[in-house]
């Protein structure tokens, strides 16, 4: 393949990486606070895609939208996706995880619950919305905007990168600068002491889930714009995003962002060199290699007890 194709793939990798980074934040936040691998986060992501699609079905975009209208459609879709993701994540924490936390279940029990919840959620989506993949309606003309070393950048790519970077900056601000962020970090470091200091642990955990859900839902919408929406769309991006979180150092928010970017690039380069069918092997291979040689990830585990 030509060099141009290489740049194409690299740019695609960055776009994909942005999405992975946003999903990975959801895993890393929950892991940091609860030491729980929230398997069902991939379903939160999937429901976000459906949420955006539903909003844009109710309020169908006009056939030839102006610039301002396009922006509005995208914002509405993304907000709906985020809202859906947030609601699903909130419900998940409330129904499935909180009873377990009440009676201090072993971690194995948490993990199995997460798997069960994930199973339930994605099959429920398959039942409610049918099992075929659906496309987002056209919200704008997806034309080439400019080229970068011969790689063509489309509106969708720029949309994804800009909104993902915006979300990441926003989240970084929330975690590091706000009161909610400092209570999240406090619970992650030591829940008992945090509760003695007047932090309401249940509330913080619930809000952590919601933050992860909002980001995951918005990412689900963006993913739906880029690909399609289908009830099984959560699984592979979810696993890859988890691998990204581990690669960056689980519990470390900035690590998750870095890991997501890297993994997106690795994945598209795998496609470039070996072909589409090996795409998802890349994520797992990276995961295994990282765990063997640097189990704390690139930036180290930060948020939370370094277990």
């Amino acid at each position: 393949m030509s060099l141009n194709a290489f740049w194409d793939f690299l740019v695609l990798g960055v776009v994909l990486g942005c999405l992975y980074a946003v999903i990975a934040i959801g895993y890393t936040l929950v892991y940091g606070v609860l030491q729980l691998l929230n398997f069902a986060h991939s379903e939160v992501f999937m429901f976000g895609g459906f949420g955006g699609l539903m909003a844009l079905t109710v309020w169908a975009p006009a056939p030839d939208p102006s610039g301002a209208q396009s922006v509005l459609y995208v914002v509405v879709g993304m907000l709906a996706g985020a809202a859906f993701g947030g609601v699903v994540a909130y419900g998940l924490e409330k129904v499935a995880y909180r009873p377990l936390r009440r009676h201090k279940a072993p971690r194995l029990v948490f993990l199995i619950t997460a798997i069960g919840a994930s199973f339930f959620l994605y099959n429920l989506a398959g039942k409610l919305f049918g099992r075929n993949s659906l496309s987002m309606p056209d919200m704008y003309e997806n034309k080439r905007v400019f080229s970068f070393f011969g790689a063509e950048l489309s509106v969708t790519m720029i949309l994804i990168v800009v909104s993902a970077v915006g979300m990441m900056i926003g989240l970084d601000y929330v975690v590091n600068r706000t009161k909610l962020g400092s209570s999240i970090r406090a619970v992650a470091q030591d829940p008992e002491v945090a509760s003695l200091m007047g932090v309401n642990i249940d509330k913080v955990v619930s809000r952590t889930f919601v933050i992860g859900g909002l980001l995951g839902g918005a990412a689900g919408f963006l993913f739906g714009v880029n690909n399609k929406v289908v009830y099984t769309m959560g699984f592979l991006p979810g696993i890859t995003a988890f691998a990204a979180a581990v690669l960056g150092g689980i519990g470390n928010v900035r690590g998750a962002m870095l890991g997501g970017m890297l993994l997106g690039i690795v994945e598209t380069l795998t496609v470039y060199f070996w072909g589409e069918e090996w795409r998802y092997v890349a994520g797992f291979a990276v995961l295994v290699v990282v765990l063997m040689f640097r189990p704390t990830g690139l930036l180290g585990e930060r948020l939370g007890r370094t277990a």
Partner: peptide
């Protein structure tokens, strides 16, 4: 061998990955 020395939930995800690799 490479994963058993790690934390247990990593094992879960690595075995999942192993399954995907075998399947693919």
């Amino acid at each position: 061998a490479p994963t058993l020395r790690l934390r247990g939930d990593y094992l879960a995800i690595v075995t999942l990955g192993f399954h995907e690799i075998v399947y693919l």
